[in-house]
Design a protein around this nucleic acid. Structure first.
Length: 545
RNA sequence: GGCCCCAUGGUCAAGCGGUUAAGACACCACCCUUUCACGGUGGUAUCAUGGGUUCGAAUCCCGUUGGGGUCACCA
């Protein structure tokens, strides 16, 4: 068969000699050991925790080694393209402090541009044409119906599905048949003529999994779709070669197509990058665990964390603890060191999928937020409120001095240890709400209504905003004593049966009556911030509840 | 189903042939505390299973089981 003529018929026109591409995209001039990594999302506009997970790993590896992280857009599938998706990806990742050195919509060194695969069409075709000339690729005229019928047949006969061996009908089409189809104007795709044999097992060293065995590929995969655009596999081989990627960190769902990629790199004569397949984030679902899913799990979407007002640094720290098992220990020892100083290692990446644990994230969030200054906390909340807060919440920022007092109190500033009441911006805004309006009661009283009213009346009768904390509490104790509650906790614990309760119960009545909650910071200070009128108003109303 | 990956408490996990099998989250108890927190101390709880190899196995090998991924002109 005249492959040269066939190639010209299939992909007519002049293409640059392949060596031109090697010259155009020379090896990068980087120090020894520098890794070039990338993020290669498709522009669907949906960026999720898994993307962030991989992004952090890629970013750390590139920048720890003095290398480069770039952003490539895999827009070979028109159906999935969404406007503004690329900006969304960049913004979402910037929120987590992931910065690219070069790439789509970023600029940087233009040597390896363009970063949109659609703009690299000529190159893919040039290589496809070359493979056809070499007899290593061929046109396939099978329709989608034929292919799905084939798949069905194979499934029924319990054979491996796909286009391979004797099932690859178009692989051995005669020259006449090919030209007859072409003359008839039949659409075609270009397939790889695979030389692999699945009986052959290859040993392969994966940067995170270690030594794995790979089955040789024998699928005649599509490399150019009927619109002349490459499939992921083909574009991956060419792009990662010419963008000079040294290490591909990607999700383990790609492990299954590694054989294809290995054969593609070989047939193209490219040296392979190293690969590291990281585990996916799982979620407990009833009895079993499964990959986090876009449809079922809102916490998969990065947007969820922004809306909830998670502190970006906390999310990043949690990702890091899952990504590198020794991170947590390092962070305990170096609580004040910049995260960039952590010696991130590919080898320390976990081999097994980890369950996403919101409790753990929440704990980290509380800790991180508790370290903030009042000013930083205010700024953090304000940014959140401006985008996601209610009208009411935005007014909290009108009186800066009051807000500062509130935040300082809720964060325990000045105390021996900070409080950890704040977890996310939305939750924080909700917990300070009672400082700004009388909120619905969220906790139940433990004391009977009649008793409560007595306590509230007595408190109202003696309360004075001029009292300092000591005097204030003495009065509370006096009321406790009068109503048959223990004024001393030790005494109460010795014989709880001889009292109705303790001063703690009395304080709780006052606390819930003024704030609606059983858990708040120091009540005396809260009353100072609220002011006399507000306190009176709330306690009076509470008598009716 | 074929192929591949994975396997230490409820969760994240340390461990690299000899340990009383770390630590963190969650949970429980107690202590501290003038109230709420914070904090402190302690506790419950793990090597999936069966065979080897070895003086000795969580650690090495094989089988089993279980979980996950993947089998497109999607990435």
């Amino acid at each position: 068969m005249n492959y040269k003529a066939l190639a010209e018929r299939l992909l007519p026109g002049e293409y640059p000699p392949l060596s031109r591409y090697e010259e155009k995209y020379p090896p990068r001039d980087l120090p020894d050991g520098a890794e070039v990594t990338r993020l290669a999302p498709s522009p669907t506009g949906f960026i999720h925790l898994g993307n962030l997970f991989a992004a952090i790993a890629n970013e750390r590896i590139a920048h720890r080694s003095g290398g480069v992280l770039y952003l490539r857009i895999e827009d070979t599938d028109l159906k999935r393209k969404v406007d503004g998706a690329v900006e969304a990806v960049i913004n979402a990742l910037r929120y987590f402090d992931i910065k690219f050195d070069e790439g789509a919509e970023i600029g940087g060194d233009e040597t390896y541009a363009p970063w949109y695969q659609r703009e690299r069409a000529e190159m893919y075709r040039a290589f496809a044409k070359h493979l056809i000339e070499e007899g290593r690729a061929y046109p396939c005229f099978c329709t989608e119906e034929e292919l799905s019928a084939l798949r069905e047949e194979q499934t029924q006969r319990k054979e491996i599905t796909g286009y391979y061996g004797k099932y690859a009908k178009c692989r051995n089409l005669s020259e006449e048949e090919i030209y007859r189809n072409l003359d008839a104007g039949k659409p075609f795709v270009i397939r790889l003529r695979s030389m692999g044999d699945p009986a052959n097992k290859i040993k392969f060293r994966d940067a995170v999994k270690g030594e794995i065995t790979v089955t040789e590929n024998d699928q005649d995969v599509v490399i150019l779709k009927s619109d002349g655009i490459p499939t992921y596999h083909f574009a991956h081989a060419i792009d990662d070669h010419f963008m000079r990627t040294t290490l591909v960190i990607r999700g383990e769902e790609w492990l299954a197509s590694l054989p294809i990629h290995i054969e593609l790199f070989d047939v193209l004569g490219f040296r392979r990058p190293r690969y590291g397949h990281n585990c996916s984030l799982m979620k407990q679902d009833g009895e079993t665990r499964r990959k986090l899913s876009k449809r079922k799990d809102p916490e998969l979407s990065l947007e969820f964390y922004r809306k909830e007002g998670y502190f970006a640094r906390a999310v990043k720290i949690y990702m890091l603890t899952l990504l590198n098992s020794n991170f947590e220990e390092w962070y305990q020892k170096n609580p004040d060191a910049p995260l960039e100083e952590f010696p991130f290692k590919v080898e320390k990446m976990s081999k097994s999928g980890s369950l996403f644990d919101l409790d753990k994230l929440n704990d980290i969030s509380k800790n991180e937020l508790s370290k903030l200054s009042v000013a930083d906390m205010g700024a953090f909340l304000k940014v959140w409120a401006e985008e996601f807060g209610t009208e009411e919440q935005r007014h909290y920022f009108d009186d800066e001095e009051k807000l500062s007092r509130v935040l300082a109190l809720c964060m325990g500033v000045g105390g021996k240890k900070r409080r950890k009441d704040f977890m996310t911006a939305s939750q924080a805004m909700e917990t300070i709400r009672y400082f700004f309006e009388r909120t619905p009661r969220t906790d139940e009283y433990r004391v009977e209504k009649a008793e409560r009213c007595g306590i509230l009346s007595d408190f109202l009768a003696t309360y004075s905003p001029a009292d300092d904390a000591q005097v204030w509490f003495e009065k509370v104790k006096a009321i406790a004593g009068k109503h048959g509650f223990a004024t001393d906790m030790k005494e109460y614990k010795l014989s709880p049966e001889s009292f109705k309760g303790s001063v703690a119960d009395v304080a709780e009545v006052l606390r819930i009556a003024t704030t609606g909650r059983a858990n708040t910071p120091d009540l005396w200070t809260i009353m100072q911030i609220l002011g006399e009128n507000e306190v009176h108003g709330r306690l009076e109303k509470a008598k009716d509840e």
